[in-house]
């Protein structure tokens, strides 16, 4: 039986810049940063309260899943904000919003009360967007 999700990948345009965004802006913790040689780097980060969920910051490069052509297409799609990767939760959305905004994070929706809780939407440095939520109650 499957017991849990251990790794999830987010495709990024540049790993150094993604490191700065996820670690220095969002405040995620680096789990593994392993140089693999030839410019390859295995880089995973975790949300502060989820040390066993590794988010792999995967560069979109030719090889593995991509041909030269599909890598180019993928980079364009990511840059254009095609992909929404998930929902992050926080304890105080207004404080989180103000802090991330002060750090230059781009929001397409400021915190708004919805029937399911308070929600905001933001983009990472590549163009992937996320929902930021604070549960109702």
């Amino acid at each position: 039986m499957i017991s849990k999700l251990s790794h999830v990948s987010i495709y990024v345009l540049n790993q150094d810049s993604a490191y700065d965004f996820y670690v220095n802006k969002l405040g995620f913790k680096v789990h593994t940063d392993a140089p693999m040689g030839e410019g390859m780097r295995w880089l995973t980060v975790c949300p502060p309260d989820q040390p066993d969920l590794e988010i792999t910051l995967m560069p979109i490069t030719e090889g593995m899943m991509f041909t030269k052509e599909t890598a180019e297409q993928m980079r364009k799609l990511v840059k254009n904000g095609t992909f929404g990767f998930g929902v992050f939760e926080c304890k105080d959305i207004y404080a989180t919003y103000e802090e991330l905004k002060a750090k230059g994070v781009e929001f397409s929706k400021p915190p708004k009360q919805e029937f399911y809780g308070i929600e905001a939407l933001f983009k990472d440095d590549s163009g992937n967007w996320f929902s930021l939520g604070q549960k109702a109650g």
């Binding site: 593994t32 940063d33 392993a34 140089p35 693999m36 295995w42 792999t56 593995m64």
Partner: peptide, 20 residues
Amino acid sequence: QIRSQPLQFIPGCFAKKKGW
């Protein structure tokens, strides 16, 4: 350990596909 045996820290499927 990461330097000497990086593959221990990476899920096998990725490493294999990458040719690592």
